[in-house]
């Protein structure tokens, strides 16, 4: 296994939808501590809509179309800031993959890097601001370091994202609703970093299955 094919990518998205659904309450709990308590419900609503769309839409059979449908659906259904952030991320992935049949491990890291840049451009977040970026950036770095085997690379990325999400707890939130809490945001994990960890976990299980 050395490529992310459209079939695997579809399985990645659907698997993300399942993981988000299973962890919706946990994500909302994390968000309730430092935000408006809706991250799990929002992400769940968005990814369930994506899953429904993909199930009814066999046409999204190339990477570009698949990611575009995912992005557009998230934009219009999530509701919170993660809508434009995740939606824009997937739209960017769609653009990167427009004429590509499959991605090898290096391509995948490049594409995710471009998606990360889109999130940072949109959300104006820097590493250390206690956001999604804090899980996604180390995950991509770990993916590049793990070499050419996509199973190993995505597993390394998932582990890195998980650890990085946990490591957001001591950070001071500088973006989004959590930033209103100032010092009181310290000691809680960032919900966005946690949903990124789920996204990469789903990627690892899709390629490793």
């Amino acid at each position: 296994m050395d490529h992310l094919t459209p079939a695997l990518a579809r399985s990645w998205i659907l698997s993300t939808a399942r993981l988000i659904e299973q962890n919706a309450q946990h994500l909302s709990d994390l968000d309730a501590a430092i935000g408006d308590g809706d991250h799990g419900a929002n992400m769940s609503r968005g990814f369930q809509a994506v899953a429904k769309k993909l199930e009814g839409d066999a046409k999204a059979d190339d990477l570009g179309a698949l990611f575009k449908v995912t992005g557009m659906t998230l934009l219009s259904t999530v509701g919170g800031a993660s809508g434009p952030l995740y939606g824009g991320f997937f739209l960017d992935l769609g653009k990167q993959c427009a004429s590509r049949a499959a991605l090898d491990a290096k391509d995948l890291a490049d594409v995710l890097d471009s998606g990360l840049a889109d999130i940072q451009r949109r959300g104006k977040a820097q590493p250390g601001d206690k956001t999604m970026v804090d899980a996604l950036a180390p995950a991509i770095a770990a993916m590049r370091a793990a070499g050419d085997d996509i199973v190993t690379a995505t597993r390394a990325a998932a582990d890195a994202a998980r650890n990085a999400a946990t490591a957001t707890a001591p950070l001071l939130a500088r973006k989004g609703r959590a930033s209103y809490l100032g010092e009181r945001s310290i000691g809680h994990e960032d919900p966005g970093a946690n949903s990124v960890a789920l996204l990469l976990d789903a990627l690892a299980s899709a390629t490793g299955a």
Binding site: D38, L75, S76, V78, G79, G83, P84
Partner: peptide, 9 residues
């Protein structure tokens, strides 16, 4: 009717 925003809308 739900709380949130929709970029497509």
């Amino acid at each position: 009717q739900e709380i949130g925003t929709d970029a497509v809308h």
